[in-house]
């Protein structure tokens, strides 16, 4: 049978549709998810199949409906909430951070909140400061939440099905620039486990850790580096929390060099957590160079296309960072 290619958008939809067919307790709720099909067309066609009781258009009330989904999840339902742009997660922050993330623990292990909140993050669309942020580190910083950030259609489908099954609240980060990206995706349902990184490229010279859209930039950079004789090993984290640092450790034990590539702003980004986990443990001694981070500049995202490109990571910036690291003499920081 020929391998089937679908887009990332279709893969996310296929996971939702599959889960909703399997389990009547799964529903999708969000702004314009019905006839409009969602701001990015992810739920297009779903209301026709499942009706407006299960594909629910909400008023513009993010705190309200994420709170409602939290309650429905506490009752055992399996809500999927969509937030149109991840920037608007700020509006439901209390419900996520003080409610959903805390309920299980503060109730002493009683009750659980099996909810998924899907939202597209990231820049590169010219949508400027309030529609382009990558705020996923906030949720990585919140015990009780899981954070997933798939980079391929295959992972998007498999991880979303796992997220819906998971008994905890999962923040599921999509990326606007990935929605049209195509990849091989089996038609039947399958699960990609949460918390497991994927080594997507084998190499001996340097380990590049990344996730989401940046994974594609890194693969592009890795090809350019290979042409220059540097073989990069690429670790796509796929899940940011819980973080698969063991996979990173295994790789740097081989390469001795660590570069993290993330789209969010550098200061207190999740890349800092990757680096810390490596340098504060035994694997520190596996490193033969100081680690490096390629991240967004510590500024909001500007509108102008060139300004936007200036502050975002690019494959070229990744190549440059890796070359600087590899070229540095051992034991000398330059």
């Amino acid at each position: 049978m020929p391998e089937r290619e679908i887009t990332y958008r279709e893969a996310v939809r296929e996971a939702m549709v599959g889960a909703m067919r399997e389990n009547d307790e799964v529903f999708l709720m969000g702004e314009d998810v019905g006839v409009y099909g969602g701001a990015f067309g992810v739920s297009r066609g779903m209301i026709e199949e499942f009706g407006e009781e299960r594909v629910v258009d909400t008023p513009i009330s993010e705190a309200g409906y994420v709170g409602l989904c939290t309650g429905a999840a506490l009752m055992g339902m399996r809500p999927i909430a969509e937030i149109q742009f991840s920037d608007f997660m700020t509006h439901c922050m209390d419900q996520l951070v003080n409610q959903a993330a805390k309920i299980r623990y503060m109730f002493g292990g009683e009750g659980r909140v099996p909810m998924v909140v899907r939202t597209p993050g990231g820049a590169g669309t010219g949508a400027a400061a309030q529609h382009s942020q990558s705020l996923e580190a906030w949720f990585v910083h919140t015990p009780g939440l899981k954070v997933v950030m798939p980079s391929t259609p295959y992972d998007a489908k498999g991880l979303l099905l796992s997220a819906i099954d998971d008994p905890n609240t999962v923040i599921f980060y999509e990326h606007k620039l990935l929605y049209n990206k195509k990849g091989t995706v089996p038609e039947e349902p399958y699960r990609v486990p949460l918390g497991e990184a994927n080594v997507s490229r084998i190499g001996d010279d340097v380990t590049i850790v990344t996730a989401g859209l940046m994974h594609h930039y890194v693969l592009e950079a890795a090809e350019a580096l290979a042409d220059a004789g540097v073989e990069a090993e690429v670790v796509d984290l796929r899940t940011l929390s819980p973080m698969d640092d063991a996979a990173v450790r295994r790789s740097i034990e081989k390469t001795g060099k660590l570069v993290v590539v993330e789209e969010d702003v550098k200061t207190a980004g999740w890349g800092a957590e990757v680096v810390s986990r490596i340098v504060e443990g035994e694997s520190f001694y596996s490193l033969d160079r100081a680690p490096a981070r390629v991240a967004g500049a510590d500024v909001p995202i500007p509108y102008n296309r060139d300004l936007e490109a200036h502050v975002r990571p690019t494959p070229e910036k990744v190549v440059e960072a890796v070359r600087n690291l590899v070229d540095a003499r051992k034991g000398v920081y330059a």
Binding site: A128, Q130, H131, P302, Y303, N304, D306
Partner: peptide, 16 residues
């Protein structure tokens, strides 16, 4: 058009 002479010097665009 994202120009330096715009109200937000190209940083804001339509929505800002």
């Amino acid at each position: 058009l994202g120009q330096a002479t715009g109200y937000c010097h190209g940083k804001g665009g339509s929505m800002h």
